[in-house]
Structure formats: structure tokens, C-alpha cells
Nucleic acid binder design. Sequence first.
DNA 1: TTCCCGAATGTAAGCGCTTACATCTGATTC
DNA 2: GAATCAGATGTAAGCGCTTACATTCGGGAA
Lengths: 341, 341
Amino acid sequence: MSSIPPVPTLADVARRAGVSTATVSRCLNSPGQVNEGTRTRVMQAVRDLGYAPNFGARALAAKQTNTVGVVIPTMENAVFARGIQAFQNALGHAGKTLLIASSAYQPELEDEQVRTLVARGADALLLIGYEREPSLFDFLARRGVPALVAWSFDETQSHPAIGFDNRASMEELARLVLQYGHTHVACISAPTGPNDRARGRVQGIRHAMDSAGLPAQNLYLTEVDYGIDTGAAALRHVLSAAPATTVVMCGNDVLAIGALRAAREMGLRVPEDLSITGFDDIDLAMLAEPALTTVHVPHREMGRRAAGQLVQALEQGTPLKSVRLATDIRVRQSLGPVPKG
Amino acid sequence: MSSIPPVPTLADVARRAGVSTATVSRCLNSPGQVNEGTRTRVMQAVRDLGYAPNFGARALAAKQTNTVGVVIPTMENAVFARGIQAFQNALGHAGKTLLIASSAYQPELEDEQVRTLVARGADALLLIGYEREPSLFDFLARRGVPALVAWSFDETQSHPAIGFDNRASMEELARLVLQYGHTHVACISAPTGPNDRARGRVQGIRHAMDSAGLPAQNLYLTEVDYGIDTGAAALRHVLSAAPATTVVMCGNDVLAIGALRAAREMGLRVPEDLSITGFDDIDLAMLAEPALTTVHVPHREMGRRAAGQLVQALEQGTPLKSVRLATDIRVRQSLGPVPKG
DNA sequence: TTCCCGAATGTAAGCGCTTACATCTGATTC
DNA sequence: GAATCAGATGTAAGCGCTTACATTCGGGAA
């Protein structure tokens, strides 16, 4: 592999520039401390040799890796891709690199991946949602790894988080739905078991209906995995299991798009025969036919600010603070009044 | 921060289990070598102490980080998100972690990010497209870092790659388009300057037209940045700059979706008044109205196989091999015959 | 001129782990 | 019962870098 010319080390550079390794190290890390002439000589040697510092050695000696980890359900969900892209950009500007692990929505994997990321040298972490073993947070605290929860915000939770209140946002949308006169609501949700975000959204609907004096059985809830096809299948199921349904509130836009497609395939007009809503406001939401009424979430801002906080925590030791971001309802064509008759 | 109980080290575990550090290390890395009784005792100590290995030390001593890097234009493009997600999954199964950098399509950033990734300890790399300084490949070779190009395949290039032939795939689609009788083609492409994939696609169209005996000026080419809105704007521009156009071939589906939207806004029926095609076959392509005729690319397979090759290269020293993946045309409604009259 | 001080540089001690090699144990063989 | 051997474990030498501390040197103050 690394045949004749072995990878150069700091010592090689030092020898070539006629200085000590300490000076080379200083040139690289705090150039201000080094006399200009020396510095140019050293940098030349670095270039000549094609030197690049050894990561492990640097991490070991400096006790930090300049790496931040994130555990994400999946990048295939545009919602995460968007937020994480912004997160990564901001991190890059601060000289940090992103380490990614994905859990494929399997909760038992999540905790393990957090540990893996820490073992892989993550200086700080971003976690999606609160849902994890308390011992995990202990572990992170003990190791001094700042961890910020994102995509969720719940004032009853103590861990610092940046996100929005899933429950309140969905409740707001549900209120709007009820104003349109709907009384029989179906909800197609992602599995709520291991997912505080999905759960919060369902609670929001429940609460809005409750406040409006509608009985619990007027909400028909079904849980399916993430996907367009599963959303489509769920719509068919809902309409046969709860035929009185006049509006289907979906836990996210992808499910809603699936539902929309199924409705079209079944010959139902949206919103004349059936209303459908989403959550997230992905690009697709606006492009769908009819365009989807949904909850807009500031994913990019969330990613950017999450990075900012983590970088500050790492560099200045600033403690993490919870931030609640505002969401807003995007009223488009997929929601309409209750069909007459 | 890491207050009273300092982070435990291998030595702490060894002491508690009453063995040497070597034994603990072996328990962790090759458990088979250790007597079962000893192993349970050690593992118990590991758990009691909440020990997790120090990454830097491990990397330094073992000379590898089990980390693979990728430089990606952006995760917000579903095409990359999909492939990278599959890549990451496969890597995870092999015990490797993914390090991500994104270039935001800025070529000058790319090379620097490759170096950063290497300095951050990436054992191997995945690069999108061939387009980079030759010295970069030298650098990687000298450091013994296997690097695989993805999303492209070009037999005239020597570097190992896994991907598809952008030129040939687009040429195939263009042939189909010409069969429909179109003679005045417009192409909305991503910037071809720093992007061999975009360039290949344009060449494919050129070549098909050439073979069909159509003059070069019958192709109107415009280049715009990635995005739905830019695609929409480009369509308006194309139709005013080249009014004879009867088909718009877009360099990717996102641009095509934008074009579709603009056409709708302009009151044009697709495909009756104007045909539009895409490339990539993202989810959106099938859901659009009308559904998009496009080139289907096996992104997930590409990601999975890229991971496989890199892992093999790392663990068995298997040399990287170029793989050409097949694409196929998905004929849907957005392409139709030339409008009469 | 002598002394002191700060800037520039050098010296060397780890950082926590892996691993080649050495040692020890008990079973197996003759 | 001695010799042999394999399996289990211990010893200790680094891996390449950062950084506290030591040293050197030149110039300004006294």
C-alpha cells in the first residue's frame, strides 16, 4: 500500500525545515506565535512533503476531534435532509466535520449509535427527538459531550432542545380543520410508539377535538410506516374502516402525498369529496395536485441554529439552551369544507 | 465539565477486572482469544465503569479509524440523499461510520474538503464525479486512501468508478424523444463547467441529434443552478429565446419539475403543447402531473455497492473496480408527439 | 556595562491504545 | 516423569502529536 515514501510526520517536516516539532505544531495551530521567516520555511516544508497531520495523534494529544455527530432516522426523508444539510454547512464554517449515523427508525439502534458516535470521537451530538433511555443522557453528561435534541420542543422535558412543539402545531392545524366544519377526522400517523414527534402530533388533534366537544371516537387513528405507498394504503384502509371520515390529517407530508394519490386513484376529488392535510411542508407539498395544506417547519433554521449552539458549547463552554421555533400553517387547496349531504 | 469522575481508561478497566490492559484490549477487539471467565469479568468492569474506548488513541495505535468519508454536493437533492443513505447503511453493517462534507457544488471547495476528510481520519473516500485535480488523486494514492468515484462511469477515465454512463443514458432518452418526431430540442442543464455528469448528459443529446442528422442549432442549451424555481424560470426563458422548441429535455428531475410547473402556469398543456423530460427518477417524477418521462438511476444499489467495494478494499486490500450500472427509461406522460400545426 | 524581560524556539513528557514478544500454566505425549 | 506444546495472559514499546516548562537571545532600562 503506502509503499516507498511513507506518509510524512511532523518530525519529517521539522527536520526538513530545520526546526523542532514543537515549532511545526505551532505553525499549524497558532501561527501567530511563530516568527514569520520560520513560518514560511516550515510551510514550505509542509508543502514539499505533502504533509497532513495524523488525525488519531492529534485527537489523542489535543483531546478533541472537531467532529460532531448526529443520529438521524433517515436521509431519505427530505425533512431531515434539509435540516441536516444546513447543520452541516454551519458546522463546516466553524471547522467541524459531521459524523452521521442513521437508525432507520429503530429505537434500539439509536442508543447504540449514540455510543458508537461518541466512541468514534464525536465532540458533541445532535439527536432527533427526546425519545431515548435516561441512562444515555447520563452517559453523555459523564463524558462531557454536549448533546442537543432537535426536531422537538417540549417544555415539560428538561433536556435542551431546539425545535418546535409538535403537539401545539398540529393542534393549531386541527383547530383550523374543525373550523371547516369537519366532525369525523381520521389520522394517518407514523408509529407513535418510539417517536415523541408523531405522538405529539396525534395528541394535538385529540386535544383540539376535545376542546371542540367532539367525542374521542370521532377520531379514527391508524399508524403506518413512513412512505408514500404506505400512506396510500392507509387511506384505503381508513375509508373502509371509518366511512364517515371527511378529513384525513396525516402525520407528515409524505403520508399525505400517498393519501392524495390513493384518493385520486379511488376517484375522490380533494377537497370536494375529502380533505387531506400534511405536516412538514416539504417541496412536494406545494407541487402536489391539489397543493397540500400543511404545517410549515423551519428546518434549515433549526439546523443552522443547532450547529451554532453546539459550536459555542464546544468553544466557549456556553451551556445549551432550549429554543422553540415557530411553525405556521400553510393553507392550500387540499383542505376544504365538509362535503354537503 | 467532566468533573469528579474522570472518563475511565483501559487501565481503569484492567485494574478493576484484575487483568492487564492487553487482555482488556483483546476482550474488546478479538474476544475469541480470551478465556470466557476472564472475558465476562472484564466486560462487567467495562459496564460498571461505563467505559468507552478513546477514539484518538485507538486510531493512533491501530492506524485506522473505521471511518469513510464522502464529499457530496448537497443532501437536499433527493438523488444524493438516497444513494448516500444506502451507502451509510451498508457501511454501518460493516462497522464503519460515515463522515460527510458537502461542497454546495463549489468545485474549489471539493478538493479542500477531500483533504480535510483525510486529515479527519477517513480510511477511504467516496467522491461524486470524476471532476477534480489530478494531484488530488496522487495525494490519495500516496496516503493509501482508496477512493471510489460514484454517480459517473466513463470508460475513457482510468480512476475506478461506480455509476452509470450519463452520456449514453441521456442519448438513449434523446433517441426516444426524436422518435416522437421532435426536431427542435431545448435542454435545461445544470452548469456543465465543473460537472462531468451534467456535461455528459448534454453530450448525449447532441450526439443523438447528430446521428439523426439534425443540425447543431436545433438544440438550444441553457444552464441554470439546481432548483425547482430555476427550472421554472429557465423554461420561460427557453420558450422566448427558442420559440420553435417542442420538447424540453432537462438535466435532472428537479429542473424538469420546475419546467412542468412553469408550463402549467403559462397555460401550456404537457405533453399536448410541449413535451418535457427529466433525469434521475426521483419520487416526484412519478407523482407529478403529468408524470415525468425520465431516466431511472439505481441510486440505492450504487450506494450499497460502493460501500461494499470500499469495505473490501479496506479489509482485504481488494483493488477497486469500475462498475457500470444500467439505467432505464421510464416512459410516462410528459413526453408526447410533436404538436400538429 | 549589567540586569531583566519578553519573544522565539527547543526539550521531553505524556495522551490511551494496540500488539509483538515473553512468560506462565496445565495438559498431552512418550 | 520429563519434554513439548498450545492457550491464556502479561510486559512494554511505540503510534504522532500537543504543550508545559526550560532555554536562548537581543534590546531597553538602570
